[in-house]
């Protein structure tokens, strides 16, 4: 599903040395996997996530998504891939304020070219999948952190993307809410979603079926477990 070869990305801030964040990084994810990428802060895991999510471009290297090279797509085409093939979950949830849960989940469908007719119905179904059928018309300010993150996950799911990219999804949550969110990811994975989780927390990463470690701009396989 995801195939990355010799990916390089470096940054240069004025007056500082060039920072090689990713160096000849190889990585691949098969459909149906639940992979956790673990790394200390500054290890380049968010940079990797941004490149995987087509929010950023690598300096060099190959990236194939669904067997299609994406390095040379135009910005409009990349926007379309983000819309249809990728679902994002962020640490800060990034829900629109003063906008109901259902309307937040409808958002990706506004930019879809598929021409969904009943986006409200699809949004409600996605909210049911994450257990928020009782909170459809609530505003983010009326929801707990865990519930807000569920809305964000429903938003990531609603366009049926092949893969969900989650960047520290439990980082802003208490332990119990974090555990519930991880259970939700496990359940979604069991039902067929491919999940790529980025975290600095080994305990959180242990929910994944495969854990890779990022350090010095490269990945190392850590533990491989057979998905139950």
């Amino acid at each position: 599903m995801i195939k990355i070869q010799k990916l390089c990305k470096s940054f240069q801030r004025p007056g500082e040395d060039v920072l090689h964040v990713l160096r000849d990084l190889d990585f691949s994810v098969e459909a149906g996997e639940f992979v956790a990428i673990v790394g200390a802060s500054g290890s380049g895991k968010t940079t990797l996530m941004n490149i995987l999510g087509l929010l950023d471009r690598a300096d060099s290297g190959g990236y194939e998504l669904h067997d299609t090279p994406v390095e040379n797509l135009s910005s409009v085409e990349r926007a379309r891939v983000r819309n249809e093939a990728i679902g994002f979950v962020f640490q800060q949830f990034h829900l629109l304020p003063r906008t109901t849960a259902t309307e937040n989940v409808e958002l990706p469908m506004l930019y879809s070219t598929r021409g969904d007719t009943d986006i409200s119905k699809k949004a409600r179904e996605a909210l049911c999948r994450v257990g928020l059928e009782e909170r459809l018309t609530h505003y983010p300010s009326e929801l707990s952190g865990g519930q807000q993150q569920r809305v964000a996950i429903a938003r990531a799911l609603v366009n049926d993307p092949g893969i969900i990219l989650a960047d520290e999804p439990t980082g802003n949550l208490d332990q119990e809410s974090g555990r519930q969110i991880m259970n939700l990811f496990t359940e979604l994975n069991r039902n067929g979603s491919t999940i790529l989780l980025i975290t600095h927390d080994e305990a959180i990463a242990s929910a994944a079926s495969r854990v890779v470690r990022i350090a010095d701009g490269q990945l190392q396989e850590a533990i491989t477990r057979v998905a139950s």
Binding site: L55, R82, N83, F90, H94, L96, L107, Y111
Partner: peptide, 16 residues
């Protein structure tokens, strides 16, 4: 700004 970033992440083009 965050809203714009999010909209772009979920598929908004600069044009939209």
């Amino acid at each position: 700004i965050a809203e714009v970033g999010l909209r772009k992440a979920v598929g908004a083009t600069s044009g939209s």
